[in-house]
Design a protein around this nucleic acid. Structure first.
Lengths: 374, 374
DNA sequence: GGGGCGGGAACAATCGTTTTCCGTTTCTCG
DNA sequence: CGAGAAACGGAAAACGATTGTTCCCGCCCC
């Protein structure tokens, strides 16, 4: 009947108990502190009045906001929505809610968003933007904030993380190309301040070595960011006259899409003239012209696993740090086909024999094979 | 030096004033209540201690959370990220933060998310999921919650809304097809419980009439949702043997993408055998095979405008209700080309003469022309 | 010179929960 | 039967801000 929403006081009054008792009765953790009968009376009164605890008041007292801050580069990148949904869905099950912050790859913006979230007393962070050495990480570590790194790793910090086995993925991409007869393969590397940039480059190099192929510096160009524009620029650079490349491994789908643009500019046909393989298997990437061959990993699951790690951390700050790798798989589509015999003729053959790897469509990978220490 | 973050109390103590005074000094709205000298002392103390107001405590007292609830069908739909960013960016300027809720088109889920957000005391809602008659709307209206409808409208409620002039957009799509020589044009209509579904259908019908073309029921099929699967299903239905359609206007890009699938299934080539036009100009839709011709509207701006409307409403509950329409424009790409002469021959010519509408690439539209009342 | 006025700051009361600290009561068992 | 220990639940103090009210004091004016 009251106009204002019912408060704990009201419930207590209705149940003829003290507010403190009502609180105990309603809280699962403390319910055993009151008699069954009282608990029943309180619950019933709460029910009757349509009582909804005020999360703000609760937060003020308990210093927990049940809110998680998530930092990502840009929600517009189709890679992130499924990951974020994984996070949200999992966290929602435990009563947490997500605040999304877009950094646009800008350190100042990242700082702003981070501070803003700290001010709002988020209970933890999921960082998908961390660069290898990041002041935020130091700060978070010092403040003892629960943090999980997602799709990123950082050295020297005690943070749990979940990411993809990038080395394996890129290794498989190279092996695939080699099996198709390609030997002059270039790489568009991601930014080297970002963990994915370096690990994918490493995977590429390992893969080339394993296939007995040369991978000198002239065949590697570094993107300054994971964007279509950068992909296009790097594509041009890689395909400068005389390079003779027949295939490109791009560190990320966006870069690969940029390559498509470069191919158009240069009048090259993909896959006939030039092959390209991406990384991530973004939504809709299978509908491009041609459908992009790429390395897939379970996006949604990346989110749910990150959420699990973070929840562990929040519920028990002393829980062990976990580093989780998700297995990637190669998805063979239309952007890389066997090298035309004519072109193959004069080339030194690839040494790899990855027959056992190239299943009809997708190839689950095992961890460990091509992986290096450090 | 203190370990815990500084509180208003600390600041007050440092400035040798009462906490209340410190509060007033720090708050722009009440600063004039304290002397200049005191204000300076307080501000300085706050600065020195690195004071950050605790938003939770503030919320408890002021009953404003500076949080906005945003309900969308699914973040994975590439249409939404840019819209959401528009919202976030604009709201952030005013110190608001956004909670995103995905409903997956499920009423029960929508209800859950809505309640959850109300429990968290959001200061307002942006609804991009509203169906024409929605219990949520009634509830929100009764509770006097600030609400803005985005990309949706609803009848009989006093809510501001911002959406696209769907009639104009679809009208232009039809005119374009007619100008290309198509006359047997089908429509995949969106769900009729959703405002975009009905207004785009209306635009289609108006457009057909204006072009002097027949649009009987057999050429309209209703999707139950804006999904690729539904698009495929409806595409099949529309292209059943004997239909003789040469073009399809889809109420949304997802449905159009679904059509691509149906074409593949049926061995039809697009655009040679069958043309299709979408709606929304989702990100990446220009990179499909073939690039989709579609109706574009400014996504980001839709978000910022919705934010502005909501802020108005929050700051002054008596501000007038505003219904805002954004102008769409036709984007001509590769999924609709002039009908081959052979096919055109035996057909009754389209009556439209839309020369003035078909600019080289995009066509800004004027409101009013093909629009109907009610 | 006293009453009135008003600016400026202090006091105190919230906001709605949780939680610590204690009184009661009741139960158990020697 | 009485001592000690559970078991319950009430009182009150937070949590950190905002805000209505009171109070003090200097100043103006009659």
């Amino acid at each position: 009947m009251s106009d204002r929403p019912a408060t704990l006081r009201d419930v207590a009054a209705a149940a003829r108990v003290h507010p403190a008792t009502a609180s105990r009765a309603l809280n699962p953790g403390t319910r055993l502190l009151v008699s069954e009968e009282t608990a029943r009376r309180v619950t019933e009164a709460a029910e009757r009045l349509g009582y909804r605890p005020n999360p703000v008041a609760r937060s003020l007292r308990t210093r927990r906001s049940h809110t998680i801050g998530v930092l990502i580069p840009d929600l517009n990148n189709p890679l992130f929505p499924p990951i974020v949904r994984g996070l949200e869905d999992r966290l929602a099950k435990h009563g947490y809610v997500v605040l999304i912050g877009n950094t646009d790859g800008d350190l100042a913006r990242e700082r702003m968003v981070f501070d803003q979230m700290r001010a709002r007393h988020v209970d933890g962070f999921v960082l998908a933007t961390a660069t290898l050495h990041n002041p935020l990480l130091a700060e978070a570590a010092e403040a003892d904030l629960p943090v999980v790194l997602m799709n990123r790793t950082a050295q020297g910090y005690q943070f749990s993380s979940v990411s993809v086995d990038n080395e394996q993925g890129e290794w498989a991409a190279v092996a695939h190309l080699a099996s198709l007869g390609h030997s002059r393969i270039g790489h568009i590397a991601g930014p080297q301040e970002i963990s994915t940039g370096v690990s994918r480059l490493r995977g590429f190099l390992d893969g080339m070595r394993a296939a007995g192929l040369a991978a000198d510096e002239s065949r590697i160009v570094y993107a300054t960011g994971y964007s279509i524009e950068e992909g296009r620029r790097c594509g041009h650079e890689l395909l400068a006259p005389g390079s003779g490349l027949t295939a490109i491994v791009a560190a990320n789908d966006m870069l690969a899409v940029g390559c498509y643009g470069a191919f158009d500019d240069l009048g090259l046909r993909c896959p006939e003239d030039i092959a390209v393989i991406g990384f991530n298997d973004m939504p809709f990437i299978d509908r491009l012209r041609p459908p992009l061959s790429t390395v897939r990993f379970p996006h949604y699951k990346l989110g749910t696993e990150a959420a699990k790690l973070l929840l562990e951390r929040i519920e028990d700050p002393d829980s062990p740090v976990k580093i989780l790798y998700l297995a990637p798989e190669l998805v063979v589509r239309g952007s890389a086909v066997p090298l035309a015999p004519a072109a193959v003729a004069g080339l030194p053959g690839g040494a790899a024999d990855p027959d056992d790897m190239i299943a009809p469509n997708t190839v689950p990978l095992r961890r460990g094979a091509g992986r290096r220490k450090r």
